[in-house]
Computed example of a mutant assay.
Amino acid sequence: MTKESRIINFMGVRHFTSALSIVFIVISIASLAINGLKLGLDFTGGTQLELLFDKPADLNKIREVLEQEELKSPVAVLFGSEQEVMVRTQDQMKEKAQQKLSAAISALGSGAALEAVERPAREMEGFADTLVLVNVSSESVQQQNLFAAADYGRVEYQQRDGKTLVTVENSIDSVYLRRIIADIEQATSSKIELRSSEFVGPQIGDELRDQGGLGMLVAFALVFLYVAVQFQWKFSVGAIIGLIHDVIVTLGFFAFFHWDFDLTVLAAILALIGYSINDTIVIYDRIRENFRILRKMHPHEVINISITQTLGRTIMTSASVFIVLFCLYFIAGETLQGFALALIIGIVAGTYSSVYICANITAALGITKEDLMPKVRDESEVQETP
């Protein structure tokens, strides 16, 4: 078998691969437009709890309790040890507690409802919340024992403008949280210590989202400048289109399958940009070298030879990264699954784009050996050189 017979005709299928890429991008954009990204707690805001169990935690039973409470996107993972559990949900405990109380009060009938949750009056020092109830008397509420002293501490009832005011010592979110912990204790037959309870506001999530988007734009701009300086602007266009393809396809998968998009996934997207451009640079460097050596060959032939020569390196690099990512996905736990999944999809797309998109776009822009030959200094520059 001669050397020439081993050259793979990548450019011969460029029209097919271009059409395939366009189809994937259209589907991805349509998924993003219709479904949108299912933003995680990092971007939407929510609650994060750290629980310490007196014995190894049963995550499956914990997740069952969280699902029974109908919490939004609940996550329960181990951290530190088998007895330490982190619970995350996009729900805010105060809003969730208010929903539960509203349902319980509405069940009293006669149009009873929870109108609002207010701050207690100044004279009610030491109390946490004031609940404004309509169409229900304080006697009815007390008969149903909705605000037991064991849970809410001191409870004061007042009337204002025909409405019943219930002022409680313990905040409704803290009571609701204790009830969830009690349910988990019962389901897992263990004792639990609440080590911390943190709230992530949606405003912080908006800032993280905006900064992440800005980070991607800056990465694209720096990649374009780097490739233009090191190679040629036609290579830069191909590299940027390839990177945009990788990012859109990866985001499209997350939108299509409704997977959670959080900070770990955003970090994977940024890492993907670095990985994909590294693979593309290796191919570009070989194309530049071969254009200077194989001067009589057609540009498509030079590109075919260059990609074939670097194909082994591309496959081995991608395979070694895949091994690590599969280990992360199946062994490292739920926290890193999104990160690993985004990189698995992105690396497949990045390997494909490095071979079939970046070089294809560069060839379509009419790259020639003249674009890559070193510039010859004119005689005036040579005479001025000391």
Rank of each mutant, 00 (worst) to 15 (best):
T167K: 07
K234D: 01
V200S: 05
G252S: 09
A267S: 11
V200F: 15
G201I: 03
G252I: 12
T280K: 01
V175P: 10
R292N: 10
Q230Y: 13
V223Y: 02
I204D: 08
Y176L: 09
G215F: 02
G238R: 04
I283G: 01
S190K: 10
T188W: 03
I293D: 11
H245N: 00
E207P: 12
L177S: 02
I281T: 07
S174R: 15
V175R: 07
H245P: 04
I240E: 05
R178N: 15
E207K: 14
I172K: 08
A182I: 08
A268R: 01
L194R: 00
V218T: 12
S189W: 13
L251N: 03
R286A: 11
A187H: 06
I287V: 06
L294S: 00
G201Y: 08
V265K: 10
A187P: 07
V227K: 11
S196I: 06
V166D: 08
G205M: 06
T250C: 02
I181E: 14
S276N: 09
E193K: 13
S197N: 14
F261L: 07
L177T: 12
S196Y: 12
K163F: 07
T164I: 01
L208R: 13
Q203S: 15
E198N: 15
W233K: 11
S174E: 15
T167G: 03
R288V: 06
I269A: 00
T250Q: 00
I241K: 07
F231M: 03
I287D: 04
R160I: 08
R179G: 12
T264V: 12
L222W: 11
F261I: 11
G205Y: 06
S197W: 02
S236L: 04
I172V: 10
F199D: 04
M216P: 01
